[in-house]
Design a protein around this nucleic acid. Structure first.
Length: 416
DNA sequence: CCTCCACTGGAAACCTAGGCTC
DNA sequence: GAGCCTAGGTTTCCAGTGGAGG
């Protein structure tokens, strides 16, 4: 009964408490506002490039690049949205397909998404990629629509499998279409992406180029102000909190997405505390929370063996905080596997997993040479030991291993 | 200058789980 | 059901290597 009363209190506090948000969805990154400050030029440019499609003409392929959170996706979606409306109005047969290549992951799945957009279902595995491409082409030929394809985060596609065959095929697909065409809009976060590409693909893909520069702190401020008006109740957001969010995000290569996250999380924190104004302090806490949530999410969703490797690295970190080497970590890893009765993977594979964890920033690994004593990777934890304990204490696999003291460490070296 | 450690990281083969066509 | 295909994870094999110690 006591608990139910306490819960009532929580609900009452929420209901009677001062409202912070008017509409928090405005701060989500998939929200496309009616007005994109400081991107008017880009919108005009892209609109101008794509406009001929309304009269059925083939448009130039466009290559858009800039860092994360510079408004590439927002501008592209904004323009295409308007274009789609206009096309309906004037009866132009245009279809639009948006694919995020990082989420799709492979050539095959991107292609499957494209097929789906022209109304054809493709099984998630089983067909030869060439076969899927043929079907895609047939569907286009038998339909009567022009297709504008947005390939967002296109760099993820090529880098992951060192293979630009899909892009090559797509850039040449118009040669074998009759009466219809496909326009490509590639979006890349990576400015060096171009160097990975086959020059033929590149020249075809970037008939037009649009570059997005990072937002400056002032520009971020304008963007946030614009959204905050719709997102927050009048007076619920202090100007200093707004400025701090803009400044922090400007420090992170002008990432508007980050700025919006900061504002949203800060608002949620204030709401939960029952405060009626979002302050700088809330924004600072929000920054910590975002980082912690990111780490937590990544650690939780790690595959089995990566978790064991990470716990191994944590144990070695307690033992010798200045860092360990591949051989030692592999020894501990093998022992941990034995404890929970799992067949260990080979050292070659673990070496690869360590590299993956390094890329994610969960471990720091760099190659060092100890001369006579060989060449190896020096490995340190990239997240705090505290976070590992907290996040893994409830994990069914990693939890029981956290406090384990491996025998291979007890023998020679004494704990520091 | 040479040796040789303890690996690194590339390449290719292998395995599994799915699904196609005939 | 046989004989293909794919993705994705893993194993096997191995040439290559920075630099301390001889």
């Amino acid at each position: 009964l006591g608990e139910s009363n306490a819960l009532d209190g929580v609900f009452d506090k929420f209901l009677s408490g001062v409202k912070i948000f008017l509409n928090r969805n405005v701060l989500r990154h998939d929200y496309i506002p009616d007005n994109l400050p400081h991107r008017g030029e880009h919108i005009h440019r892209l609109g101008g490039i794509l406009a001929p499609s309304l009269s059925g003409s083939k448009v130039s392929n466009v290559f858009i690049y800039g860092k994360t959170g510079t408004g590439k996706t927002a501008v592209a979606k904004f323009v295409l949205d308007r274009l789609e409306h206009k096309a309906k109005e004037v009866g132009a047969p245009i279809k639009i397909c948006y694919v995020n290549c990082r989420f799709a992951g492979t050539n095959y799945r991107v292609l499957a998404d494209l097929c789906r957009s022209v109304g054809m279902d493709i099984p998630f595995t089983g067909l030869a990629t060439g076969e899927v491409l043929d079907r895609f082409r047939n569907a286009l030929n038998s339909g009567h629509s022009m297709l504008l394809v947005v390939l967002d985060e296109i760099d993820a596609l090529v880098k992951r499998q060192e293979d630009d065959s899909l892009l090559y095929e797509l850039t040449r697909i118009n040669e074998r279409l009759h009466g219809v065409w496909v326009g490509l809009i590639g979006i890349s976060n990576d400015l060096h992406f171009k160097e990975f590409l086959d020059p033929r693909v590149l020249s075809c893909l970037s008939e037009e180029e649009v570059v997005f520069k990072p937002y400056l702190a002032d520009e971020l401020y304008d963007i946030l102000l614009d959204r905050a008006k719709k997102a927050f109740v009048d007076g619920a957001l202090s100007d200093s909190a707004l400025r701090l969010s803009a400044a922090l995000a400007a420090g992170e290569h002008g990432d508007a997405r980050r700025a919006l996250d900061l504002l949203r999380v800060a608002g949620e924190l204030a709401e939960r505390e029952g405060d009626n104004v979002v302050t700088e302090e809330h924004v600072r806490l929000a920054q910590q929370k975002i980082e912690h949530d990111r780490v937590s999410e990544v650690l939780r969703s790690l595959p089995l063996h990566s978790k064991i490797v990470l716990v191994g690295s944590y144990i070695l970190n307690n033992h010798s905080p200045q860092g360990s080497v591949t051989g030692d970590l592999y020894e501990v890893y093998q022992e941990l596997c034995r404890v929970i009765n799992i067949e260990p993977l080979t050292q070659r594979r673990i070496s690869g997993l360590i590299n993956e964890l390094d890329v994610m920033g969960i471990l720091n690994a760099r190659v060092v040479s100890f001369g006579r004593y060989g060449r190896t990777k020096k490995i340190r934890l990239g997240v705090s030991a505290k976070d590992i304990i907290q996040i893994y204490s409830e994990d069914s696999v990693a939890g029981p291993l956290i406090g384990y003291v491996p025998k291979c460490l007890q023998k020679h070296r004494s704990p520091a």
